[in-house]
Design a protein around this nucleic acid. Structure first.
Length: 270
DNA sequence: ATGGTAGCCTTGCTA
């Protein structure tokens, strides 16, 4: 059986990016594509065009900002819309569903700038809710992937100018320590399982020619549960979509899982 | 050099 491929892409408006999105689906044919910053209500989602390309749509949206979705060749099962832990949080930043044996989340973590504002506190509390969700999923002992725009550069080597970004919410120690906590819980940063080199980015600001100078940030991540990490075959960043005209400021990251592989992982006792 | 760009049912906000 061929590998199960999962990609994640912050498209910065699914309507503005529809031609590039359809081209990516046709060229790469991922089993699941996680989208962030769709920036539209579910009722405005370009569902017909995506379904005509052979993909199912599970979306959580709001007007103008945020918005996440799961596009998949096979139907999503048992979807969860919204990150648990705060009933007052109305921002459309998390959607999760099962696709056969693997569970996948598409998440758009709050940016958190400026750090003096309530936005930073919201970011940190959102990360703690994500950790709680990860713990609940880990107890299931299933392969799962938490994919998306984390708005966290895990280390200085993931930033083109770490000095300039030292105080930025994407690089602050509070953000990095919470990201590391997810790893200490048992999740694996899929990209770093296969690539040790510094300065590999997933985002380049539209301003100041950052793309042409390859001055970017690594903020889009695929975090794998132990049972997913046991089965991962490869992971990489696909820079091609960022080089197009009218591109998103982010480019896709993907991984391939061998779901037929047996895990040798010891189960927790009953 | 306090700019620059892109997308949003916009005239500022978010990134």
């Amino acid at each position: 059986m061929s590998p199960f491929r999962i990609a994640s892409w912050n498209v910065n408006s699914v309507k503005a990016r529809l031609p590039h999105l359809l081209a990516f689906l046709a060229a790469e044919k991922p089993d699941v594509l996680c989208l962030q910053e769709t920036k539209c209500l579910e009722s405005d989602f370009p569902r017909l065009e995506i379904e005509a390309a052979g993909y199912r749509v599970e979306a959580l949206g709001q007007r103008a900002y945020n918005g996440v979705a799961l596009l998949s060749l096979k139907a999503a099962e048992d979807p969860l819309r919204g990150l648990p832990g705060d009933p007052a949080d109305a921002e459309a930043r998390y959607i999760e569903a099962s696709f056969g044996a693997v569970r996948v989340a598409s998440l758009y973590l709050p940016n958190g700038n400026p750090v003096e504002s309530a936005k930073f506190a919201y970011k940190l509390s959102w990360m703690e809710r994500l950790a709680a969700r990860a713990e609940a999923l880990l107890l299931r002992e299933i392969p799962f992937v938490l994919a998306g725009d984390y708005n966290v550069c895990p280390a200085d080597e993931d930033v083109y100018d770490p000095v300039a970004f030292a105080g930025d919410a994407l690089c602050r120690i509070e953000s990095r320590s919470r990201f590391r906590s997810l790893l200490y819980q048992g999740l694996a940063d899929a990209f770093r399982l296969f690539h040790r080199e510094p300065h590999r980015y997933t985002f380049w600001d539209y301003q100041a020619g950052r793309w042409n100078r390859d001055e970017g940030l690594r903020i889009d991540h695929l975090l794998l549960s132990p049972d997913a990490a046991d089965r991962v075959l490869d992971c990489d960043i696909d820079r091609k979509p960022r080089g197009k005209e009218r591109a998103s400021d982010h480019t896709p990251i993907w991984c391939a899982l061998d779901l037929c592989a047996k895990s040798s992982r010891k189960r927790r006792p009953e």
